[in-house]
Computed example of a mutant assay.
Amino acid sequence: MAKRILNRWKGYSVADCDCKYCLYYGGKRHGEVKCLADECVCKEELKAAARRERMNNGSKDKSRNP
Rank of each mutant, 00 (worst) to 15 (best):
M1Y: 07
A2P: 15
K3T: 09
K3D: 06
R4I: 15
L6V: 12
L6I: 14
L6C: 08
N7E: 13
R8L: 07
R8G: 10
R8P: 11
R8M: 07
W9V: 07
K10W: 01
K10R: 13
K10A: 12
K10C: 04
G11I: 05
G11T: 06
S13I: 07
V14K: 04
V14G: 02
A15S: 14
D16E: 14
D18T: 13
C19D: 05
C19H: 02
K20C: 07
K20G: 05
K20M: 11
Y21I: 02
C22R: 10
C22L: 12
L23W: 01
G27D: 00
G27E: 04
K28C: 04
R29F: 04
R29A: 06
H30G: 09
H30E: 13
E32S: 12
E32Q: 14
E32K: 15
E32V: 15
K34M: 04
C35T: 04
L36G: 09
L36Y: 03
A37I: 00
D38Y: 01
D38W: 01
E39L: 06
E39M: 08
C40E: 01
C40G: 03
V41G: 15
K43L: 11
E44N: 10
E44P: 04
E45L: 13
A48Y: 00
A49C: 06
R51I: 10
R52M: 03
E53K: 00
E53R: 01
R54W: 08
R54S: 08
R54N: 10
M55F: 05
N56C: 03
N57A: 15
N57S: 12
N57Q: 14
N57R: 14
S59T: 07
K60D: 07
K60N: 06
D61A: 12
K62I: 10
N65P: 03
N65H: 10
P66I: 00
